Amino acid sequence: HNLTITQGKLFFHYNPKLCLSEIHKMEEVSGTKGRQERNDIALKTNGDQASCENELLKFSYIRTSFDKILLRWEPYWPPDFRDLLGFMLFYKEAPYQNVTEFDGQDACGSNSWTVVDIDPPLRSNDPKSQNHPGWLMRGLKPWTQYAIFVKTLVTFSDERRTYGAKSDIIYVQTDATNPSVPLDPISVSNSSSQIILKWKPPSDPNGNITHYLVFWERQAEDSELFELDYCLKGLKLPSRTWSPPFESEDSQKHNQSEYEDSAGECCSCPKTDSQILKELEESSFRKTFEDYLHNVVFVPRKTSSGTGAEDPRPSRKRRSLGDVGNVTVAVPTVAAFPNTSSTSVPTSPEEHRPFEKVVNKESLVISGLRHFTGYRIELQACNQDTPEERCSVAAYVSARTMPEAKADDIVGPVTHEIFENNVVHLMWQEPKEPNGLIVLYEVSYRRYGDEELHLCVSRKHFALERGCRLRGLSPGNYSVRIRATSLAGNGSWTEPTYFYVTDYLDVPSNIA
Rank of each mutant, 00 (worst) to 15 (best):
R400G: 07
Y212V: 10
R353K: 10
T401I: 09
H371A: 13
Y259N: 12
I438L: 09
D273L: 14
L228I: 12
T340N: 11
E247D: 10
L369P: 02
C468N: 00
R301L: 03
K406A: 12
F215H: 11
S458E: 04
G308T: 12
V359E: 13
S363H: 08
L379W: 02
E417F: 12
F372A: 07
L464R: 14
L487E: 03
K302R: 12
S320R: 12
P434F: 05
R318M: 08
R218F: 02
H371E: 08
G234N: 04
V365P: 09
K460T: 11
G308P: 15
F499E: 09
L453C: 05
W428V: 03
F226C: 07
L487I: 09
A463P: 05
S274I: 00
D291Q: 04
V324F: 05
G306I: 14
K302M: 06
N339K: 10
E281R: 05
E430R: 01
A381M: 01
D450Q: 13
R318C: 07
R459Y: 04
G491L: 00
P270M: 06
W242K: 03
D311C: 07
F246C: 14
F226Q: 08
F246E: 05
V331T: 11
V358R: 14
V297D: 04
E404R: 10
S474F: 10
E260K: 06
T386R: 12
I418M: 02
D506G: 10
V359L: 10
Y212F: 14
A220T: 15
T272F: 05
S251W: 05
N339R: 12
E389R: 11
N477Y: 15
D204Q: 07
L280S: 09
R218Y: 12
A463W: 11
G306L: 08
K302W: 13
L379S: 02
S274K: 11
N477L: 11
R353H: 15
E452M: 05
H294L: 02
L235H: 07
L213T: 15
T347K: 07
E247M: 09
K460D: 06
T241E: 05
Y498S: 07
A405V: 09
F298K: 00
R447L: 05
H425Q: 06
E281I: 08
V423K: 04
V358A: 14
C267E: 08
D261M: 09
A381E: 03
R483N: 12
D506F: 15
L426F: 04
E217H: 15
K432D: 14
D385Y: 08
C391M: 14
Q219N: 11
S342I: 04
D229I: 03
V331W: 14
T303K: 08
P496M: 03
S444Y: 13
Y292A: 02
L280H: 15
N255F: 03
W216M: 12
P431A: 12
N360W: 13
V501S: 02
E351P: 11
D261A: 09
N490I: 15
V214Q: 00
F355D: 03
P300V: 05
V501C: 11
R400F: 06
V397H: 15
V439A: 15
V365A: 05
P314I: 03
E279P: 06
F289D: 03
Q380F: 15
S458A: 09
D385T: 02
S367G: 09
S315H: 10
S492T: 07
I482D: 00
Q380E: 15
N339V: 11
D261L: 11
I438N: 04
R471A: 12
N435K: 01
C468K: 10
M402Q: 11
V358P: 09
S262T: 10
F355W: 13
L437V: 09
A399P: 06
E417R: 10
V457H: 00
E279A: 03
I410M: 11
L277T: 05
G491W: 00
Y498L: 09
Q252Y: 13
A381T: 08
I366F: 15
L235Y: 06
R313D: 07
C391N: 01
H254T: 07
Q384W: 13
H425Y: 09
N326I: 10
A463Q: 08
T386W: 12
S305I: 11
W493L: 09
N360R: 12
S268A: 00
E452V: 07
V297W: 01
Y448C: 12
A407F: 11
L453N: 12
A220L: 13
Q252N: 07
M427W: 05
L379V: 09
P431T: 03
C266P: 04
S458P: 11
S320C: 09
Y292F: 11
P244M: 15
T210R: 14
E282S: 04
V457S: 01
E356M: 12
I482M: 03
E282V: 06
G207M: 11
D204P: 00
S223C: 12
C468T: 07
Y498D: 06
P205C: 02
G306E: 08
Y441L: 01
R466M: 13
I276C: 02
Y396V: 03
E221R: 09
F285Q: 04
S458Y: 08
S251A: 10
D323G: 00
L505R: 06
D222V: 09
S284W: 13
E260P: 12
E465W: 13
K236S: 07
E351K: 12
C231A: 05
N255T: 08
V334S: 10
D503W: 13
V324Q: 12
S305H: 08
Y504E: 13
Q275K: 04
H371W: 08
S458M: 07
S474H: 07
T347A: 12
A220I: 11
T494G: 00
E224A: 13
S486E: 01
Q380I: 15
A399Q: 06
L379T: 05
K236A: 09
K460C: 07
Y441Q: 01
V345Y: 11
L440M: 08
V443K: 02
L364M: 09
L470Q: 01
Y292V: 04
N383F: 02
S304T: 04
R301C: 03
G306M: 12
K460P: 13
S284E: 01
Q252C: 14
Y259L: 08
Q252A: 13
C468F: 09
T502P: 10
P300Y: 04
T288Q: 10
K236D: 05
Y478Q: 09
R353G: 15
L437H: 03
L379A: 05
K432E: 07
Q384A: 08
R319F: 10
T303I: 04
I418Q: 10
D409A: 05
A399H: 08
G374K: 14
C456N: 03
N339Y: 10
V424L: 11
S304R: 06
E221A: 12
E227I: 11
E281M: 05
P431N: 06
Y375V: 15
G264M: 09
S479P: 02
E442I: 07
G325E: 08
R466H: 11
I377H: 03
S243H: 13
D311K: 09
L440N: 00
F226N: 08
R318F: 15
W216V: 11
S341P: 09
P475S: 11
R459L: 10
A336D: 11
E388Y: 15
T241Q: 13
C266G: 10
L237V: 05
E290P: 02
V365H: 15
G476R: 01
R313C: 13
E356N: 11
A309P: 12
S248T: 06
K287M: 05
S486R: 02
E465Y: 12
D323I: 12
L364S: 09
N421S: 11
F355E: 10
N295D: 04
T347H: 08
S363Y: 12
P475H: 11
S203T: 11
T303P: 15
N339L: 11
Y259W: 09
F499A: 04
C456F: 03
P349K: 09
Y375E: 00
Y478N: 00
P312H: 11
D409W: 11
S284I: 09
K460L: 08
W216G: 12
R390P: 11
